[in-house]
Write a protein that binds this DNA or RNA. Structure first.
Lengths: 297, 297
DNA sequence: TTCTGCTCATAAGTCCTTCTTATAGTTCAC
DNA sequence: GTGAACTATAAGAAGGACTTATGAGCAGAA
């Protein structure tokens, strides 16, 4: 049997490094130092007598052989993890790791977590807010709640909700700007998180029967919904957001919907998880709770 | 990512132990102590909270989950080894490990190895004689040369030669027994390695037109060709062997074929190796040399 | 260019895991 | 019952892997 199997740890480094094209990021995933990864990979290269990575500026690019090996290693490790997952079903009770966006966390998740706790006190939740979609298969995250249209993957994907978008601002804004008529939108920042798709405020204004020329509008274009929300929360503008997401905030008075007009679509939130995870039981518990929550909102 | 991947070494123990149904044999394969295997497996069981093996007398029998896991692990490790093999082709030069039977080694292989060395001085051979067919995929053996009819497997199998069988004895025997006529076979031990199939001396006697009753024959039944050969070599009997294998010994005078009659078939030698081995180059070199040798013999 | 920031490489020493040894416990065959 | 073969467990030894610290290379900005 190949003596390489005495160096499985080193092969893990190879696989992760090839995937990340970076020793540093691989080290991050494996929770070891960069130096450790470097040493392990060199060991494999020496053992096999094959160069696996080439330094290309800031990246470590796998060679052709490196790529081939890494792909096969990935399949191998996946088979192993699958094998373990198949026989090991963790009990319902236990921690659940969730990652989501800032806006989802502050507007829907956090304010309702106590209800989940009430139903499942045996499942402590750990919520991580991050802008990037974590790699569920290579991290310790169990569930991701993400905005937008996702590529199909091997993960279990479920559309949480799709809905319209309505103008939303903070009550403070109304103290400074008179928003009794849509015409007055000229007077405040229109926060636009859709500057790449172009869909957004332009569509809404049209819907409201307004034709304000571009140069009379104060645009504030931001990269995503989270930034938009934080801008608006601090009272500096108005943005188009999901009614589902904002409903509770509106009811609580922290957000205001100054006009009834809405535009269709444009908002979609998804729930993602690995159906083969040993923690599916608690994942499903969370999923069904969240779906209920969304349905009744 | 599953924390189990930090214990890949322990999972190797699980896989090997399940395959061998024994911690001791698994330890042998992995070249560690039995205690090490025991500890590693217990660690996995504790980590997963799943019992993987049950003690059943002298064996460690994998539980249903243990079996399932081990199968998946086997596939995973195989994928990893395949990946390594695919990118790592060892050069022609280097040691080649061969296992074969006693008779094949003494009669054909050893007397001719110098020729192989002449053609490929860069390939040192290490020949291991053993009665059992080693597990090529889980040992460090590159080539096995084996007698008989083999089950199909994932290994590359090639029939080395099939041939007839002729009576063979040592010249010493002729000094004590007069074998000018087949009738006189009554006077010496008939060594029979075919007592399970029944085919052998009985068939040969028939072929020679003799009808000697069983109780007038001195049978010596042995378990395999190797034992038969060693008995005959020491001058204590006569047996039915392959002309191909014995040709050189006959020419050298260490074996004698006292009668011309032969029986068809019954002898088959195979050559086995893992086609995916990184050492295929030197394996093929040996294969083609051996085939040539057999052809001209 | 030079500077700054990011990345990998390397060395030395520490630490921790794994392994070995030794022994006790269990089962089976005779 | 006794011995042989196997596994379990404990304690200590050995060795590999990891960390820290530092140097070197490269890219992009000033």
């Amino acid at each position: 049997m190949s003596r390489i199997l005495s160096h499985l740890g080193a092969l893990r480094c190879v696989e992760a490094a090839a995937r990340h094209q970076s020793y540093t990021r691989a080290a991050g995933e494996l929770s070891v130092s960069q130096a450790a990864v470097s040493q392990q990979i060199r060991q494999v290269e020496d053992l096999l007598g094959v160069k696996l990575f080439l330094r290309r500026g800031r990246n470590m690019v796998p060679t052709a052989k490196g790529k081939e090996l890494a792909a096969q290693l990935g399949a191998g490790f996946q088979a192993i993890v699958d094998g373990v997952n198949r026989i090991q079903t963790e009990p319902l009770a236990g921690t659940l790791n969730i990652t989501t966006t800032q806006s989802m966390a502050t507007m829907l998740l956090m304010p309702n977590l106590w209800k989940f706790h009430q139903r499942h006190p045996e499942i402590p939740l750990r919520v991580t807010v991050s802008a990037e979609l974590e790699d569920l298969r290579h991290s310790d995250i169990d569930i991701a709640i993400r905005f937008g249209f996702l590529e199909p993957s091997e993960l279990h994907q479920k559309i949480l909700f799709e809905d319209a978008r309505v103008p939303l601002c903070s009550p403070q804004l109304l103290e400074h700007v008179d928003l009794s008529s849509p015409e007055n939108l000229r007077d405040c920042w229109l926060v636009d998180a859709d500057y790449r798709t172009g869909y957004g405020w332009r569509a809404w204004l049209e819907r409201a029967g307004l034709d304000i020329p571009d140069d009379e509008i104060k645009w504030l274009q931001v990269s995503n919904m989270d930034v938009a929300l934080s801008v608006v929360m601090s009272g500096h503008g108005i943005f188009l957001g999901s009614p589902t997401l904002s409903k509770q905030s509106v009811r609580a008075g922290t957000l205001v919907q100054p006009f009834p007009q809405h535009i269709e679509g444009g908002t979609r939130y998804n729930l993602l998880y690995d159906g083969a995870s040993p923690r599916v039981e608690r994942i499903r518990a969370f999923e069904s709770w969240l779906l209920e929550l969304v349905r009744e909102t």
